[in-house]
Design a binder for these strands. Structure first.
Lengths: 232, 232
DNA sequence: AGAAAAATTATACGATCTTATAACAAGCAG
DNA sequence: CTGCTTGTTATAAGATCGTATAATTTTTCT
C-alpha cells in the first residue's frame, strides 16, 4: 500500500529479553518498555491498525493483532482508546486526512491556473498511489463500519464534506476563468466526485476493465460536458 | 432491505420440543427436521446469509448465525458448502443476479424507445429498492471478499461485464436514434456506470448529501454532455 | 531524592468462532 | 416391508476475541 509508505516508521521490536532473563534472574521479570506521549502512541496504534487491515481485511481489526503489529500489549489499546472501535475510527481519520493532503499537495504544486490545478487534482486521483487495491481493501472495511457506527458516520460526513468543497472550489474557479455557467455548483461537485470514486472503485475491483489514463480522459470528458453547458 | 423482500419466505422455526421432551421421554430425543433437496437447501442458506449480513455486517458472516437464521444446525453449512466462504460467494451470485434482473425488468416494461428505456434504467437505479443502505452493507462485505478471493473475483468480473454491456447498449441506441457520435462506446458506458455507482455509494454512506431525484438529474446531465459531444 | 501520576505489561474470564466427527432420521429403491 | 444413502442433528476441541483488573515500570514534579 503505497500511501502508507510515508507513514511507516521503524517501529519498536519487542525484545525477547524478558524471556531469556526470566530463566536467569527469576520468574518475575517484566518486559522493558519505553513510555511515549499519548499523542505519539495513539498514532502508532492507528498506523498499526491500518497495516493490519491491509494485510488481513476485516479479520485484521482485532485488539491482539494490532497490538502485536505495534509491538505492544493488548491492554495499551484499551488504555488509549477504550474500545477498539474508537481506534479504528481514529485510523479512518488518519487515512482520510492523508489522502486528501496528498492530493492537495499535488494541486498546490501545480501552476496556479484553474485548469492546471484541476488537471493536477485529476492526475493525483489516478496516480499509482491511489490506484492500489490495498487502499480499497482498507476503505471497504471503513465503509462497513460507517454503516453501523454513528462515530464513524460522523467522521465520514466531515471528510466527505471537505472533499466535495475542495472539488467545488476547483470547478468554480474553472467556470469563472473560462466564463461558463454551472447551475448548481455543489451538485456538480458531488457528481464529479462520484464519477472519480466510481471509476476508482471499478478499477480496483477489476483492473483489467480500463487503464488509469482512460480514467483521466473520462474525467476530462465530464469537465468538457460542463463547459458545453450540460449542467446549465 | 427491500430487495430481499421478494426472496424472503416463511422459514422453519426450530421447535424447542426436543428440549421439553428430553425431560419426559428421555435424554436421547432429537429435533425433528424436514429433509430438502440440496438445491433448495442451498438457496435457503444463501438467503439466510444475506439476511445475516444485512443485520450484522461482517459480523453476520458466521456459520452459527447463518445456521440459526435458517433454522438449522451448523453442520449443515459445512455439509452443503464445505467452508463458509463458498456459501458467501453463492449469496453474492444470488444478490447480483437479483439486482440486474430487477433493473432490466423496469427497462423492458418501459416504452420501446431508446430515451424511455434509458430513463427507466436511471429511474430504477435510483428507486427506493436501490437507495437502501442495507444493500450497500451487503455489497461492502462482498467487495472485501472480491479483493481476496479469486472465486469471488471471477463472479464480479462476469457481473460487471454484463452490467457495462447493458449500459453500452442503452447509450448506443440513444446515440443512433438522436444522431450524435460517441468516440469510444465502451469507455463511455464505463464512465456512466461509474457515475451511477459513485452517486449510489455516496448517498448510501451519507443520505443527507443529496436527494435521489438530484442523482437522477446528475445522470441526465451526463447524458446531456454526451449529446453535446463531450465524449466525441 | 522521593513521591505521585501515568503509561505499560501481564493475566484472567467469558463469549464466540471454525472445523471435525459421530450418531441419528428421512426418504428412496428394491 | 427392509435396507441403503445421505441430509441433518448433536457435540466436542481448540483458537481467537474483547474487556476488565491488578501489578509494575517509567516519567515527572516538587
Amino acid at each position: 500500500m503505497m500511501l502508507m509508505d510515508d507513514l511507516e516508521q521503524a517501529r519498536l521490536t519487542r525484545e525477547g529479553i524478558s524471556i531469556v532473563t526470566t530463566a536467569k534472574t527469576g520468574p518475575k521479570t517484566r518486559a522493558r518498555f519505553r513510555r511515549e506521549a499519548p499523542e505519539d502512541r495513539r498514532r502508532q496504534l492507528g498506523e498499526a491498525a491500518l497495516r493490519c487491515i491491509v494485510k488481513h481485511g476485516n479479520a485484521g481489526v482485532s485488539v491482539r493483532q494490532i497490538a502485536a503489529e505495534a509491538g505492544v500489549t493488548q491492554g495499551l489499546i484499551t488504555h488509549h482508546f477504550g474500545e477498539i472501535n474508537e481506534l479504528v475510527a481514529y485510523a479512518f481519520d488518519i487515512m482520510s486526512e492523508g489522502i486528501l493532503q496528498s492530493i492537495l499537495k499535488a494541486v498546490n504544486e501545480a501552476e496556479p491556473t484553474p485548469k492546471a490545478r484541476l488537471d493536477a487534482f485529476i492526475a493525483a486521483s489516478f496516480s499509482p498511489i491511489m490506484m492500489d487495491r490495498d487502499v480499497l481493501g482498507v476503505w471497504v472495511v471503513f465503509w462497513s463500519l460507517i454503516l453501523h457506527s454513528p462515530r464513524m458516520s460522523a467522521s465520514q460526513r466531515q471528510e466527505y464534506g471537505d472533499y466535495v468543497r475542495t472539488v467545488e472550489g476547483l470547478i468554480g474557479d474553472l467556470a469563472r476563468e473560462e466564463g461558463f455557467a454551472v447551475a448548481d455548483l455543489r451538485l456538480a461537485a458531488i457528481a464529479f466526485t462520484a464519477l472519480m470514486d466510481g471509476l476508482w472503485l471499478a478499477w480496483c475491483l477489476n483492473p483489467d476493465a480500463f487503464r488509469p489514463e482512460e480514467g483521466v480522459r473520462l474525467c476530462n470528458n465530464w469537465i468538457e460536458g460542463l463547459r458545453r453547458g450540460a449542467h446549465g
